[in-house]
């Protein structure tokens, strides 16, 4: 059952990713990426990480993708690749490298001895968002605060970068 669900989701994720890569229109790309993100969020559920599922949906599929779509439409940059590629010689090379990378990372990823996934009580406790929350506000309080600070800086940076009438 799990495996079937996983396979379906995986196919959707890969399809979304490949479609994003090949579609000429940036808006289409963004929408395919959205599909991919959604599939990944399902993956998180399958991996017993419900909290991350929620986060993935809200932050990535919600906020970030909206931002992407917004920028694409604001700039009118749906199609910028009409001109011929000036470094077209790179394309076969890139495909070759991609293939090599895939092989290498598969070898790396599968190289380690895999223990069978745990189950039962331990997994249930692991998937409980409460333990994650407790960790966030105890052991990882400082990184958590720093993340907030980073977000603040990002906000300020964005405002400064796009201020009109003042050269930076």
């Amino acid at each position: 059952m799990d495996l079937i669900l996983f396979l379906i989701t995986a196919v959707i994720a890969i399809t979304g990713a490949v479609a994003m890569l090949v579609s000429r229109n940036a808006v289409h790309s963004a929408l395919f990426l959205l599909l991919n993100f959604a599939a990944i969020s399902v993956m998180y559920l399958l991996l017993s990480a419900p909290f991350l599922f929620a986060i993935q949906l809200t932050v990535y599929a919600g906020a970030i993708m909206v931002l992407f779509l917004f920028v694409v439409m604001l700039l009118g940059a749906e199609k910028v690749e009409d001109a011929p590629d000036r470094i077209a010689w790179q394309q076969p090379l890139a495909l070759l490298l991609g293939l090599a990378l895939l092989v290498v990372s598969v070898v790396v990823g599968l190289g380690g001895a895999t223990t069978p996934p745990p189950a039962g009580e331990a997994l249930a406790q692991f998937s409980d968002p409460r333990s994650l929350g407790a960790l966030l506000f105890t052991d990882y309080l400082l990184p958590f605060e720093v993340t907030g600070f980073i977000l603040l800086i990002a906000v300020v940076g964005v405002v400064v970068l796009n201020q009109r009438g003042r050269k930076i």
Binding site: R86, I87, Q90, L97, S105
Partner: peptide
């Protein structure tokens, strides 16, 4: 130094591959 970001990324990828390959070799 062509100025093309994508070329740099390509070279970068080659580097990653080499590092990974070396790691694999020794692992």
């Amino acid at each position: 130094q062509t100025g093309y970001v994508r070329t740099y990324a390509l070279v970068f990828t080659v580097g990653v591959l080499i590092v990974l390959g070396v790691m694999l070799w020794f692992a």
